[in-house]
């Protein structure tokens, strides 16, 4: 009797564990988390100082958060289906960061208007992008690439590459932490929870996925496809503007080339995170894993003292294998 229940319980527990593992393996983002975890542990092997494990995680969380915020925006755009991608993210970041910091001129009282300017710049950039795409019917890749020339030029024109310091209060906030967690990561967490809610729980999220899977079917099914695209491109640009604002405050000033690495980074975190590059299927948790992974992989290879050539080759190979694994085990298209 006693044995029987225990066996039963054991079996149930076993099955539950198996189911759990099975369910986890079916999640497209699990591979990115595994990769990030392994990279983290591998880096720890050479960490020599006490408290280094937490220091590394802290740094990873801090720097991943910028990639997460732009990645979320890019994810929504990529979800819209083949050919949809926003290449103007770096230029939007630069322009928003530059104009906001120029306006604040290190005055702590102007933080809120400064933030609004950054968001407003993002909004304007998004509007411009979308008007090119919808009104002039230019393919998004070309439209966003050409508008990024304009945004970048405006940034150069407005400030000639001069680095203006952020207000002290903002610099302290972005570089500081609350309860031992970096503030930047908390902000990114807030953004991703919001994005997760929109994508998974709100009707808009269904619309975005539907438009990405088959825009004609979605239109016939009563989805306001153009309104959805409008909202997605706008929010992507606003998130980019916001990231530019955060990053400029974090790194002690807006740079003309500060967004440069986020062009590929924003796309990479979406793909490594297990979202379908063909659109129509996305997830938010994967972006976090991918962003952490992208930071940790560089840290790991740096810590092991590999030269630049080896480092780049290994980075490329590891990313390819993670994407290959994720797309094989993940969802079927």
């Amino acid at each position: 009797m006693n044995m029987l229940t225990r066996n039963n319980r054991l079996q149930i527990a076993k099955r539950g564990f198996k189911d759990l593992v099975g369910a986890m393996l079916r999640k497209p983002w699990i591979w990115a988390y595994l990769a990030a975890g392994i990279t983290y542990l591998a880096t720890l092997l050479v960490v020599s100082i006490g408290g280094g494990a937490w220091a590394l995680l802290y740094a990873a969380l801090t720097f991943a958060s910028f990639a997460v915020i732009v990645g979320v925006g890019q994810m929504f755009v990529i979800t819209l289906g083949p050919g949809n991608v926003d290449l103007s993210i770096p230029a939007t970041m630069t322009l928003a960061g530059t104009l906001a910091l120029k306006f604040m001129e290190t005055d702590g009282a102007l933080v809120l208007p400064g933030l609004l300017i950054a968001l407003g710049v993002g909004l304007a950039c998004g509007l411009f992008n979308f008007s090119l795409i919808l009104l002039l019917r230019i393919p998004p890749i070309i439209a966003t690439l050409s508008s990024s020339f304009l945004f970048q030029s405006l940034a150069i024109w407005s400030n000639r590459g001069l680095r203006i310091k952020p207000p002290q209060i903002l610099a302290d906030f972005t570089t500081g932490g609350t309860f031992g967690i970096p503030n930047a990561a908390l902000v990114a967490l807030l953004v991703s929870i919001l994005a997760w809610f929109v994508l998974e729980k709100a009707i808009v999220g269904r619309w975005i996925s539907a438009a990405g899977q088959n825009s004609r079917a979605a239109r016939l099914g009563g989805v306001p496809v153009n309104a959805v695209r409008f909202g997605v491109y706008l929010s992507c640009a606003v998130l980019a503007g916001f990231t530019g604002f955060m990053l400029a405050n974090f790194s002690g000033g807006a740079n003309l080339n500060m967004g440069a690495e986020y062009m590929l980074m924003s796309i990479a975190v979406v793909v490594i995170g297990g979202s379908s590059i063909a659109g129509g299927n996305s997830n938010v948790p994967g972006i976090w894993a991918a962003a952490l992974f992208m930071f940790l992989i560089v840290s790991m290879l740096n810590s092991y003292g590999f030269g630049a050539g080896v480092r780049l080759i290994l980075t490329g190979m590891i990313i390819v294998s993670v994407v290959a694994l994720a797309s094989k085990r993940g969802h079927k298209i």
Binding site: V46, A59, V298, N302
Partner: peptide
């Protein structure tokens, strides 16, 4: 040659350095 990239790279390698 950029402050923000250097900041990121240094933050990543510091834990492993004496």
């Amino acid at each position: 040659w950029a402050q923000d990239v250097a900041q990121k790279a240094v933050a990543g390698i510091l834990p492993s350095l004496p």
